[in-house]
Each structure stands twice: as C-alpha cells, then as structure tokens.
Design a protein around this nucleic acid. Structure first.
Length: 512
RNA sequence: GGUGCUAUCGUCUAGCGGUUAGGACAAAAGAUUCUCAAUCUUUAAACCGGGGUUCGAUUCCCCGUAGCACUACCA
C-alpha cells in the first residue's frame, strides 16, 4: 500500500534556527509538496537544560518569512499545533514515551542503569575507548548485573537512573539511504544509548524521535548528515518496537561547510566572516547575544530560498533561478549531492540582485522609503513617481535596497563636500570658467528636457572646442559632488532647473 | 584512536564508459561612456594519486590520500 508522504522538520529550540537547519526544512518542504504530502513541524525540546526562550517562536517566524508552510504541528496559525497526531512538542508527550520505554524494558530490549555521571567519567578515564555496550555493561551497575530486589530497592529509594537500549553485538546493520545508497555499520561500534533519563522524566532524542516519527506516520526522514552514524541505532529501535514494516525511508543531506578553512558552518562563523548564518535577527535572552539575520540584512526570502536550494541540490542543466513553485516541481532527492557544500556568501548576494531586478519599480520605491527616513530625508521631497524613476534608474547597480542610498543620495540632498579624488582628476584649471559659461547658458534655457539640454550643451561645447569629458565631468561634480551617478541629463531631469543652477553656483563658490 | 560518509575549475555544480569536460559566482581583459556602476564580449581556471575492469575511464571496482561527520544522561 502506498502511504501518503509525510515528512517533518524537527528542530530543537536551543537558539536561532541555523541556516543549515533552514535548508533541511526547505528540502523537507520541497519533497512534501512535490509528492503532495504533508510537512510537519515538531519541537524536540527533550533537553530541558538547553532550552532557550523565544527560540520556538523564532523558528515559526523564520519558516513563515521564507514561505515554508507547515501543514501539521506547531505553526504560525496554531502555536500549540494543529493536526490529530499531537501534541507536537516533545516535552508535552511524556506519558506517551513512558509507555514505549516500558515496552522496551518488558521485551528485554532495554535495561535500567544506575551509573552516575561521575562513575561513567571514571570508567572512561580507566578504560581507553570506553563504550557502554555488550562488552562492558556487565561491569556496570544496571538491572542486568544487579539482583532484581536490589534494582527495586534503588528504584523505590528514588535513585536517579537511565534506561539504556540493549544492543546485540556482532551484527551488520543495513541502512538504506535515499541519497547514499546502502550503508552498513556493525553493531559493535554502537553503544547502549540512553533512551530515557529519570532526572527530568524525559526521553533522549533517539527514543523520542523514533516514537514520534512512528506515531506521526512519517514516511521519509530527511535530515543532516551528522545523523548518519546514528541511523543504524534508529533502525534497531524500529525493529525492537516491531515497526520495521512502516519504518520511514532515510535521506541524509550533505552538510553546509565554512566558506574558509575546514569544518561545518557554525553559529559563530557569521560574526567571524561578516555575514548572517540565521534567517532572522535573534536576541538570545539566555546569553544576551544578538545574531544578525538575512531578513534584516535586506535579503528577499525568495533569494535566500533559491540560494539555499542550490547548495546541495541541482537539476540537470544550467538553470540557476528557481521560484519556490519551480523548485517544488523539479526537486528530487536523487539529485541531492553527497558531498558537503561550502557556503558561498558572494553568490547569495548575486541571487538577491536577481530578485531585486525582478521587482517592479513602484514596489522597490516603497521599500526604499524607510531608507530615506533613516537618512532624514522627507518622504514628500519628490512625488512617488519620481522616486520610482530614481529607483528604476539605479536598481541594476545594487544587491540590496539599502545600497540604493549610496548610489542616489545626491538626488535627495545637495553635496556638502566634493570628493577629493574626483576633483583632482576631473576639476581642471578651466573648469570654473566652463561652469560659469554653462551656468549662463542654462539660465536662458526653458526647455529642460534631456534632448534639448543635450543638443544645447553639446553644440556649445563643439562651438567653443571644449572637451566634452572635461566639461561634463566638472558639471557632474557640481551636481553630485563626485564622479559617479547615472547619465547627467537624468540628474538634471530629476533636480530641475532651479536646483541644478543652484548647485552650480554653490560649487563655483566652494571649489577652489 | 575507532566507525562512517565524501572527493570535477578558488566556490556552487552539469556530466550518469567515447564530450574541444558545460553553466553560474568570484577574478582578469576588452567594448561602451561625461563619471561610477551596470551591461555585453572574451580570457584564465578542474576530473586527488595508484592499481584494476574495459577496445576505451572523470564516470564502474579496490587500495591509498585528503576532507568532513559521529564517537554525551545534546540534538
């Protein structure tokens, strides 16, 4: 029987959602949509000590901003989860896990261990490469070595304990991975993993994950490669529970690596290399840190999605620009690469540029208004169509809306100083005379259209045998304050006759 | 140390036995121009090494090497 595709993204609320986690969520989402299935969001908060306030809300907002829609579980419109497989927060599923811990204990697949952290540490110090497994569990204090009445006594006393999974030695465990094929690991290298800890009455990741995936009818587990080594353990758990026939298929994604040097991309790389590694800005209440986000850096969610999608996945062919719908249409796990991808921030900027270019000018102009505010420019300095015109003129030069300001500030305020390098190169001995003459010429000009001005000025230059470059560059410096900006008649057009002439007079007075 | 995964330009990648090894980012050069960009054109840039298999390996297999991951009462 073909089961309905159901995938989940199951982050831990231990801080801001890392960009690698975002990609995992994206691939899950693309896969779910591609196959007409469900995308669930489950919160894996079984480590009470690492809980960070606000992290869960952050995850929800981040996914929402990116356009990764959740069909079931914790989401924007249902903060406590929607769907009939809840609760979707593992800390609220305690009683469910109790039952399955019991099942494993009763079937002999798990046992109770009383060893304290200190005792374990001691053992690790004593025995090189110590591992709690078939070879060593006979040396430890657990329900396998202790008499039954002693175990009961310790339990009654309220002694802290953990439940460990009893792994049978000398067995090759096969994991079929949708991206990597068959992976075989011998059970000897697996340790008797802690499944449950009495200290906080919570299971560990491994138990909770398997139980929940089973109960939530997950068909495909798509997660980072760091989970590959524990996949055999998970297979063994499915088997111990007798759920092998409905065990989900696994797909382990390649890791996102640091752009420089070695290792996987970490939270700290953002500050170190000067680019965000989180979708949204995050204020961590626990440690007081602030992490920068893509949204606050001026990225469009479509660009982040496109960029991330291509970090580890590529369809046949040379296409680079994909909308979310196109990704959904083309995505497949067998085209996910096997090797890790270095995070190339420069390409991320290029993607944003592509999406910025796609925006209509009126929308861009609206996005630009807050930037004007930030620079103390009155919004009504120009009518909206003029701002749209300016933005349209300059947009191809920038990657972000915020960068627009540096490109077109002179439209909004007269230069208060003149760039020294430009002056040195473009303001010559004859310049004051040229500008004075040009000023007189323009004062008489009524037709202020680009065509008329161009015809007038060019013929004047030709008649006097002035150099076009010489005059125009000096003119530009008067208006802009530097050697930059769009075509000069675009500038005069926006500025208008009055302001143009005014700036020329000011320049004549101030440039020496 | 152990176990596993991986290996094409600097980076992301296409290639699924026979190709002048393709594209994109970044880089360089040229064109354009009143400037700065943008744009266009061009250039430079790769199959980790060694064995096999095969008429033929970037491609399949093995070994080596390197990188990465995991090796918690964290996920």
């Amino acid at each position: 029987m073909e089961r309905r595709v159901r995938v989940r993204f199951a982050p831990s609320p231990t801080g801001a959602l890392h960009i690698g986690g975002v990609r995992t969520a994206l691939y899950n989402y693309l896969f779910a949509r591609r196959h007409g299935g469900d995308m669930l969001l489950r919160i894996e908060d079984t480590d009470s000590t690492r809980f960070v306030p606000g992290a869960e809300q952050y995850i929800i907002e981040a996914l929402d901003w990116l356009g990764i829609r959740i069909d079931e579980g914790i989401c924007m419109d249902a903060p406590n989860g929607k769907g009939d497989h809840g609760p979707y927060r593992q800390s609220e599923r305690r009683v469910i896990y109790h039952r399955y811990v019991r099942q494993l204990l009763d079937s002999g697949h798990a046992y109770i261990a009383f060893d304290t952290p200190e005792e374990l540490e001691q053992k690790r110090a004593q025995i090189p490469n110590f591992q709690y497994d078939a070879r060593t569990r006979g040396l430890m204090r657990n329900s396998l070595t202790l008499p039954a009445d002693e175990v009961q006594r310790l339990l009654n006393e309220g002694r802290q304990y953990v439940v460990r999974f009893r792994i049978e030695p000398d067995e090759d465990v096969h994991v079929h991975d949708l991206i990597r094929g068959e992976v075989v690991i011998n059970s000897n290298i697996l340790d008797d993993k802690v499944l449950y800890k009495s200290a906080d009455d919570l299971p560990t990741y491994h138990l909770a994950n398997i139980v929940d995936d089973h109960l939530m009818e997950i068909t495909h587990v798509i997660r980072g490669e760091e989970w590959l080594p524990s996949a055999p353990l998970h297979v063994l758990l499915y088997r111990a529970f007798g759920w092998e026939d409905t065990m989900p298929q696994f797909a382990h994604l390649p890791l996102l690596l640091k752009p420089d040097g070695n290792g996987k991309l970490s939270k700290r790389d953002g500050d170190r290399l000067g680019f965000p590694v989180f979708p949204l800005e995050f204020h961590n209440e626990k440690d007081g840190t602030v992490s920068s986000g893509y949204r606050e850096s001026g990225y469009y969610p479509e660009a982040v999605i496109n960029f991330l999608a291509l970090l580890g996945w590529h369809a046949t062919g040379d296409r680079e620009i994909y909308s979310m719908d196109e990704l959904i249409r083309d995505f497949s796990l067998d085209r996910v690469s096997k090797s890790g991808a270095k995070f190339d921030y420069e390409k991320g900027k290029w993607f944003n540029h592509q999406y910025l270019m796609l925006r209509p000018d009126d929308q861009l102009a609206r996005e630009f208004l807050p930037v004007l505010d930030a620079h103390g420019i009155a919004r009504d300095i120009y009518p909206m169509p003029v701002i749209e015109h300016i933005v349209g003129l300059m947009k191809e030069r920038v990657n972000f809306v915020s960068e627009l300001w540096d490109q077109c500030d002179f439209f909004f305020r007269a230069p208060d100083e003149y760039d020294e390098k430009s002056l040195k190169k473009r303001w010559k001995e004859d310049s004051p005379r040229h500008i004075t003459e040009l000023l007189a010429l323009l004062e008489q000009q009524d037709d202020w259209s680009a065509e008329a001005l161009d015809a007038l000025v060019m013929s004047w230059i030709a008649a006097n045998e002035y150099g076009v470059g010489l005059v125009m560059n000096a003119f530009r410096i008067c208006l802009v304050g530097a050697a930059r900006g769009p075509h000069i008649w675009e500038i005069t057009g926006v500025l208008g006759k009055q302001e143009t002439l005014r700036r020329m007079r000011v320049a004549l007075q101030n440039i020496h």
